[in-house]
Design a protein around this nucleic acid. Structure first.
Length: 592
RNA sequence: GGCCCAAUAGCUCAGUUGGUUAGAGCGCCAGCCUGUCACGCUGGAGGUCGAGGGUUCAAGUCCCUUUUGGGUCGCCA
């Protein structure tokens, strides 16, 4: 059994001891990072969240402590009382901040023993995700994970600081809410009191924040947990956190402006990075045409170029069909990549097919010739114009896709990023922010055979496009915006509809009958009747933002207890079966 | 739901064309060591090769099924 503290007080954290403390009697507490036993002399590196300090045990200092330390092993929890001593110059460890001093141990308490941990508690070993998640509390003991969670904390502090100073009020909204159509699959919670009825867990506080605006809170924020029952990715967890913000009496520019200032504040506070504001702005249309995506990575060029006009008269069937079907022909220029092998090129074609492209046309621009499966189908004039349009030079690789616009953009957009990664074109030290604005309000859902909201059904159309709502729904642009950094969408929002009539028209376009709309969103429509201010806001993916700021590859590394790709918690084994009694109480029969 | 990668000692991995008793580094255990800090030296323990089935004289290795972890497309307003 471990010893009790017995009144012993910690006086310093391990990482804060420096030469300034030489001569002081101190008490430190922490975990054994490592033990180096030299027989007559034992070194222990003691670790807490602030760092590591070396403790020296020898018979001369304390026979009792020296004898006690013989049994100490990795990850034992110790309290050490001793004197801070300056190390001899030849013994200084310049790799750690406390490396100029050490503690001569006079008194040792073994507060807790530890079995040998399943993996070493250090940053340099890369342990499989499964083992890390099963022993998450040990994984979180590693310095890099501690740093990540502390950075995340600083991030939320900086956000709160800014919003508090700018008149925003933090308000909580319910977790047990009404299930509404549209959007992601809900997590459901059965009601015990009302057999057969369910609450939903919120996908976001969207409707509640709008109701808070109607209630007159004017500026609201919340760091809110959101839940969506959809398939996971490196940057998606079933539960995640949003920085949720809403403001009254504002237009698009007002929202963008205050958010730029907030992001600038946060980056300064957390990373000491000075961002230039205002951020660049791109319309959705322009983002798609130049980068093939609505979340462009602006740290490098390689922009898409439209070749349709050049190939208008082409006899090549691939081009002809694409244009005939209302599509386009576009390409990118991968500088200096011409010398790829045939196998690598074939792999690129396969890569392109992932995004629905039927093929990918490559052109190797070589000294005096262009190697490509397409050259024989092109006139010399066409070829030269393509080279000119893509600013091709010797050793460049041109990649061309002809298809529906949607497929062309998606394929080239992904190829652009993939090639930039392969050829190391990305400056990792940069933060390239951009607002993508003027999103389409609606898109057509082939499965459901109806229009669906691209953002959400409360998003306001642009004033000048309102009249197109019924006539040409796909042409209506929204007062919606996303903030993108380095190719990752970290936040998005919109100015909302605050008018009952317009909201009704919107529901109608979405294919809801009056009754349906009223049944699902009646409380909101009702609220609109009593004086709704113009309002809008934004929501950030806090986890993604933390991922960017810490330079992590996955949001799991900035979440204390994440789930696997199959939405399982390996530590607690959730989800799990529940007792018959629990099910009975909820009037639920499991049908497997 | 589709596609791709991985699974061998506690951890990270190697294991050739199917062929003797499955290896390495780290960790662990024991002994030695008063200046290490990825301590060192000597010795030792440790394996259901993810699981099931098949082919074969013989399977970690080939085939099928399956489970788990990861990546990705669909999906995620």
């Amino acid at each position: 059994m471990g010893e009790q503290l017995g009144g012993l007080k910690r006086t310093y954290m391990c990482g804060e001891l420096t030469v300034e403390y030489v001569g002081k009697s101190v008490v430190v507490m922490g975990w054994v990072n490592s033990r180096r036993d030299h027989g007559g002399l034992v070194f222990i590196d003691l670790r807490d969240r602030t760092g590591i300090v070396q403790i020296v045990f020898s018979e001369q200092v304390s026979k009792e402590a020296f004898e006690k330390v013989q049994s100490v092993r990795s990850e034992y929890v110790l309290a050490v009382e001793g004197e801070v001593v300056k190390r001899l110059p030849e013994n200084v460890n310049s790799k750690i901040p406390t490396g100029e001093i050490e503690i001569y141990a006079k008194n040792l308490k073994i507060l807790s023993k530890s079995e040998t941990p399943p993996f070493p508690i250090e940053d340099r070993s890369n342990i499989s995700e499964a083992v890390r998640l099963k022993y998450r509390y040990l994984d979180l003991r590693r310095p890099s994970m501690q740093k990540n969670l502390i950075t995340r904390f600083k991030l939320t502090q900086a956000v709160r600081e800014f919003l508090n100073d700018n008149g925003f009020i933090e308000i909580e909204t319910p977790m047990l809410i009404k299930s509404t159509p549209e959007g992601a699959r809900d997590y459901l919670v059965p009601s015990r009191i009302y057999p057969g009825k369910f609450y939903a867990l919120p996908q976001s506080p969207q409707i509640f924040k709008q109701l808070l605006m109607i209630a007159g809170f004017d500026r609201y924020y919340q760091i809110a947990r959101c839940l969506r029952d959809e398939d996971l990715r490196a940057d998606r967890q079933p539960e995640f956190t949003q920085i949720d913000i809403e403001m009254s009496f504002v237009e698009v520019e007002d929202v963008l402006d205050i958010n730029e200032r907030m992001i600038k504040h946060v980056f300064k506070k957390v990373l000491d990075v000075d961002l230039d504001i205002p951020f660049r702005r791109l319309s959705y249309q322009e983002a798609m045409e130049r980068f093939g995506t609505d979340k462009p990575d602006l740290r490098f060029g390689m922009e898409l170029k439209d070749l349709s006009d050049i190939l208008r008269e082409s006899e090549f069937n691939v081009f002809k069909n694409a244009l005939k079907n209302g599509g386009s022909i576009r390409g990118i220029n991968v500088k200096g990549a011409a010398l790829m092998t045939r196998k690598q090129l074939d792999e690129l074609v396969e890569f392109a097919k992932n995004f629905g492209a039927k093929g990918l046309l490559w052109m190797q621009v070589l000294e005096g010739e262009v190697k490509s499966p397409a050259t024989k189908f092109l006139t010399e004039g066409e070829l030269n114009k393509i080279l000119e349009r893509l600013e091709a030079e010797v050793e460049d690789l041109l990649l061309i896709v002809a298809d529906k616009d949607e497929v062309v953009f998606d394929t080239l957009g992904h190829l652009r990023v993939e090639m930039a990664k392969r050829f190391n074109l990305i400056d990792e030290s940069k933060y390239e922010f951009v607002w993508v604005v003027d999103f389409p309000l609606l898109e057509y859902d082939e499965e459901e055979k109806r229009y669906v909201a691209k953002h959400h059904p409360f998003t306001s159309p642009k004033d000048e496009d309102i009249d197109l709502l019924e006539k040409e729904p796909l042409k209506v642009r929204a007062k919606a915006y996303d903030v993108v950094v380095n190719g990752t969408e970290i936040g998005g929002g919109s100015i909302r509809i605050h008018d009952t009539e317009l909201q009704k028209r919107m529901f109608k376009v979405l294919g809801f009958s009056e009754e349906e709309a009223w049944k699902k969103f009646g409380f909101l429509m009702e609220a609109f009747k009593y004086g709704a201010p113009p309002h809008g806001g934004i929501a950030y993916g806090l986890d993604r933002l933390a991922m960017i700021i810490t330079g992590s590859d996955t949001i799991r590394d900035v979440i204390a207890f994440p789930k696997t790709q199959n939405a399982v918690c390996l530590m607690t084994d959730a989800p799990s079966e529940v007792s018959e009694e629990q099910l009975k109480e909820l009037h639920i029969k499991v049908d497997l």
